[in-house]
Each structure stands twice: as structure tokens, then as C-alpha cells.
Design a protein around this nucleic acid. Structure first.
Lengths: 347, 347
DNA sequence: CTGTTAGCGCATTCAA
DNA sequence: TTGAATGCGCTAACAG
């Protein structure tokens, strides 16, 4: 690979001139400019971005921390992030942490060492966990899809509580009053969506019954297990709200295996609208999130933040709070009715 | 972020000493070593990997070119790659190319500029396409899962032809003789798996019939379409080999929609064994590939190649061809019988 | 064993 | 407008 010096020699100019034409940073006479362009083309010169990073203190790299890339939801989110990043000329480095805090710490260090310009987090983190990192880095961070509790850290996603609320209200509107809940433990899949469930019941005068809510991690197999629990009850709920499509698919499988019918014997509603939900039979009624879009917007906001920071870096304290960037983007969700919910029949 | 100079000052040593204790490259007295460690801990110092990359000419970064991350197969492969890379302290930068040659070229340039240490390709590339790149880069390249025709470029995957052969033989063993094929156009999903199909028929004395093979891209919706074609025939095949699970799932959906039963009226076999195949009803009989493992092994081989190259860089022409690294890793596939294939009944 | 020095490839002052 | 010189943070050769 040729470097800037070789180009300078070949074009018969100084390296500064080469640098200037590559970056358009200062005017260069057409004559020299042409000679440089030719040398560049002939030698197929590409500026070494490592060296640029070192001197500019900017890597054009963002890190994406994801609990599990092989999960459809995360993969789609990632693809949205990548799409925007590529357009903005940023590279994406993936940090698969398998829900392990230890791995995440390793990756935080790695990202610090590599001086990524920003970080997108696709899963739960507490403020305490982030504190150590934030103190030393001042690297912009953003949460995508799952918000963080009690903090101003930028976020892109949907209104989790409202979306869960809508899902449960849909069940209620169909005449169901015994509505089970299969929920997770973490913030979005547990607390938030659980809260939406609770409020929907409350607003419709339906008592909350602890016996018909079961806690499980997300995942098809866990959905199956959870539904087994629910079916053990002497009288099982006539409908179940599953906080993820994976859970719902597992639950569906379980119901069918028990020889019951969906939605005739039991209605099911999922959450996320991943590809899977259209492929199972019956097709899953679920809450649609614009997953790819959330990814794109996350990347856009993060990169905005990064470039904003770069600009205001010099003139500290410039009081342009007026054009402060918006750091919470809430996209629309929607209910997609397919085949797993039906009107409750008299019994 | 503190730099090496600040640590040196704080510890009262020279920067070389700091460098030496950080890398363990040369002996340092316990006394100084301790002082350095303390300074490092107190200031939470992390070596700037950008600077290291620049001088060592090594980024510890690999690029993964993938047609579509949000596709389950590719996401799993990626997760295998990431898993090994993380252990080996390599970062993974993802290059989602959406099956666009233009995007791939952009990414090749990006990877050149960023000086990645190696590249893993997860999809078809012709030798000509690679030629330009290879000429200027000498960056190790490896194909994962899909081989390249007529070249010694390292590869990790399964024996595609044999695996397809096995799938079709399974159908034949079950008594089927009218076996449809839904295949792709690209190398692995078209040429190779198609070849396995052809040979299986041939070895069993079954004539190849053009009318019952249909070409489609991979994807659930295309599988549906393809099966529609097949069902238009006055007498449809009693079994169909689909070159991917996605295709098979679409095909399954189509058959069911037409009011036919699987496997009673028509048997279906897929390929890949992605998560999906266990979730549809009936569960898909398919050819299992160790996807995650292929990813891991790819990363392992690539990194071996990279580090091998680094070592032999100085002493050119050292004739250690004896311990030449193996550059083709073929992992085992297997047939997993689930619920979409049954014995052909007399008709 | 330790410190001084040069230089990786580039952007950017500062003079000319 | 242009070129020479400085330094980003680090490693490695060299001398002590």
C-alpha cells in the first residue's frame, strides 16, 4: 500500500499538498491538484485511516453492544444501525455479550482502547453499571429499543408501556377478562411491559391476579414452559399476553401440543413482530415495532451526537443550549391482527 | 484518557519502561514494574490501540462481509465468528452488503483504508471480483459456508454436494421417485446443491426431469411462489427438496394453504437447520449444518492465517511449507428427521 | 535493566 | 498558494 509520501514524490509536490487535496482543506492550484489526482489514481492510494484517527482523534467507528446477534430481533436492529452508519461513513464493530456482564466489561475496555466515537446499547444496563464507564470516557452512549431507568441517556425506541397496554386492551376489547401474562425479568420485557398489562387491567376494572402471571426469560423454549404452568391451573386464562414473539411462539406450540386450539380455546398475543410471527401457524397477532427503523434512528442520533460534540469541543460552554439536540426518539408501534386472537365466546 | 507519557511521569520512569511492562516485551525490575502498575491502576490507563496499530501495522480487526445480517443463518454464522474473535482479542467489523456488488466494493475500500487484518466472506464472490482486491492488499481472505469455485482461497463449511445428495437419498429411501427441486441461482444454493440432487437421482436410476425443478432466490416468500409452480403441474411430485429452510418453510405454507397435507400428501425436506425449522408445524426435516461452528472455525482459521503471515513476514521464502496450514476445513453435516417426510404410500 | 531517540502515516501550524 | 517542520501515542532499535 502506497502512503502519502510516495504520492507526494510521484506527483512532485509536498506531502502537505497531497493532504490538502485529499481533504479539500485548503485551496490548491489546479495544476498541482491534477498531478496529485493522477498519482493517486495510478498508485491506487487510499489514506491510512489509522493514522488519520490518531491525529484527528476520531475513529469513525461505533460499537454496538448486543446481548445476542443470532437473535432475530437484535439482528434486525443491527442491520438498521449498519445501514445508516454505512451511509454516514462509520464502521460498526459488534460486541456480542451473551447477557454476560463480564463480557460487556471486556468490550467496554476494548471500545475504550479502540477509541470508538460512540456506543449503542441494545439491552438493559443499570446506571451504576454505566457509571464507571461514563466517568472516564465521555464517549456518547445511546440506548436502542430498551430504555434505561431514571437517566437522561439518549434513547430510541417505542413507548413500551403504552404498547403493552394496547395489546392487553385489544384482548379486553375482544371480551377476554381472564388474561394471563408471560413476562420477563429485565426492564423492558419485565417492568415496562408488565406495567402496561397492569394498567390495562386496572383501567378496565379487571382485578390483577398473581396466579396467572408467570416470569420467564425470553426464548421459545421458555414460552413453552411458561404456558405449561398456565395450563396446569384448574381454569386457565382465555387469553395470554406474551411480552415477546419468541415467548408467544413457544406458548403457541405448547397449547397445540396439549391438543387445544388457538385461538378457539385460548387467544395469544405477542410483541415485537419479528419474522417468526408470520411463519407460524396460526399466524401471530402481535404488537409491531419498527425494528429496522429503530436501528437506523439510533445510528442517526448517535452520529449526530458525535458530530455535535466534535464541533462544540473547542468553544466550551458556548450557550447554544437553544439548538440542543433531542435525545429521546419515540417511534410509533401498532397492533397487527393476525390469527391468534378471537372474540371470547360465552361459556 | 491518560497516555503513556503521563504514566511514565507519574511512575517516575521512561515511556519505554511503561511500554515494556504493558507488553511484557522485555524484562523490567520488580521495583519499577510495581510503580508502573500502580500508576496504571490509579489513572486507569489503557494503551491507545490506534497508536499501536499504526506502528505495529496490525489492527486486530477482521471484517465480515455478509449479504444480510438480519437473516438468521448469517446472524448465527456471525455470532460464531464473533465468539472466537473475542477470545482471540480481535474486533469484528460488519459489512452488510445487501447482495449489492457496489456496496461490497465500498466496503472493500473501507477495509483497506482501515487496514483490517483479515476478511471473512459469507457469500458468493467470483474470482474476477476478488482479483482487483487481492492484487493490492495481500490481506488474508476466507470464505465461510459458501465455497468459491476454482481457487485455493481458504474455506470453512460443509460438503455442499454431499449434503444435498444425502437429503435427496433420504427421500428416495422413503420410496419417493418423483422428487421436485426448489433451488437458487448462486453457487452454493444453486450449482452445488443442485449437483447433489442430480447425482442422487442418477445413482438411483431416476431420470432427471426439468419440469419439476424450479429456480428462485432464497426466502420464505420465494419458497411459497416456487411451490405454487410445482402444484400447478397436473401431477405434482410426491416430495420436494428445498435448498434452504427458508424456501422449505414458504413451500410448506403454500402446500398447507392449498388444503394439502404435509407429509401425507407431499413430503418436504429443507437445508441448513435454522431455528425456524423447529418452530413451524409440522417441524421441518432438514440437513443440519453446524452453523455456529462454521463461524468459529472460520475465525480460527483466518486468525491463524493472519498470525502465520505476521511471523513469516520477515524471513521471506523460509521453506516451512512442511507445516503449511490447512486451508480447507470441511465440517460434518447430518440429516435431522422431523415431521415433513414420510414413506411414500402406494398410489 | 533502563532511558533516549527515531519514526509509523498523516494533518496542521508556521514561514516563505 | 506551497513546503518544512511538529506531533498524535506508541514500539523498537540503540546506547549506556
Amino acid at each position: 500500500m502506497p502512503n502519502i509520501k510516495m504520492i507526494a514524490r510521484k506527483a512532485g509536490v509536498s506531502i502537505s499538498t497531497v493532504s490538502r487535496v485529499m481533504n479539500g482543506s485548503k485551496p490548491v492550484s489546479p495544476e498541482l491538484e491534477k498531478r496529485v489526482y493522477e498519482a493517486v489514481k495510478q498508485m491506487d492510494y487510499k489514506p491510512n485511516s489509522i493514522a488519520r484517527s490518531l491525529i484527528l482523534n476520531k475513529t469513525n467507528l461505533i460499537g454496538v453492544v448486543v446481548p445476542d446477534v443470532s437473535n432475530s430481533f437484535h439482528a434486525q436492529l443491527l442491520s438498521g444501525i449498519e445501514a445508516y452508519a454505512a451511509e454516514a461513513e462509520y464502521g460498526v464493530i459488534i460486541c456480542n455479550v451473551y447477557r454476560s456482564w463480564e463480557k460487556q466489561q471486556k468490550y467496554f475496555n476494548l471500545m475504550l482502547e479502540r477509541h470508538v466515537d460512540g456506543i449503542i446499547l441494545l439491552h438493559d444496563n443499570t446506571l451504576e453499571e454505566l457509571a464507571a464507564f461514563q466517568k472516564i470516557s465521555n464517549t456518547p452512549i445511546l440506548f436502542a429499543s430498551v430504555p434505561i431507568k431514571g437517566s437522561e441517556i439518549p434513547f430510541v425506541g417505542i413507548d413500551e408501556v403504552k404498547a403493552a397496554y394496547d395489546a392487553v386492551c385489544h384482548l379486553i376489547a375482544k371480551g377476554h377478562r381472564e388474561i394471563g401474562l408471560i413476562r420477563g425479568e429485565c426492564y423492558a420485557l419485565g417492568t415496562l411491559r408488565g406495567e402496561g398489562y397492569r394498567r390495562a387491567l386496572e383501567d378496565n376494572g379487571i382485578p390483577f391476579r398473581e396466579e396467572i402471571v408467570v416470569h420467564r426469560p425470553s426464548g421459545v423454549e421458555y414460552g413453552y414452559q411458561a404456558m405449561e404452568e398456565l395450563l396446569k391451573l384448574e381454569s386457565h386464562p382465555s387469553a395470554v399476553f406474551c411480552v415477546s414473539d419468541e415467548i408467544a411462539v413457544g406458548a403457541l406450540d405448547c397449547v397445540l401440543d396439549r391438543g387445544l386450539r388457538v385461538p378457539e380455546d385460548i387467544s395469544l398475543i405477542g410483541f415485537d413482530d419479528i419474522d417468526l410471527s408470520q411463519v407460524v401457524r396460526p399466524k401471530l397477532t402481535t404488537v409491531h415495532q419498527p425494528i429496522h427503523e429503530i436501528g437506523r434512528e439510533s445510528a442517526r442520533l448517535l452520529i449526530d451526537l458525535i458530530e455535535r460534540k466534535g464541533k462544540t469541543a473547542g468553544k466550551s460552554g458556548t450557550p447554544e443550549a437553544a439548538e440542543e439536540i433531542c435525545t429521546r426518539i419515540i417511534l410509533d408501534h401498532s397492533l397487527v391482527e393476525r390469527e391468534t386472537v378471537m372474540e371470547k365466546t360465552e361459556s
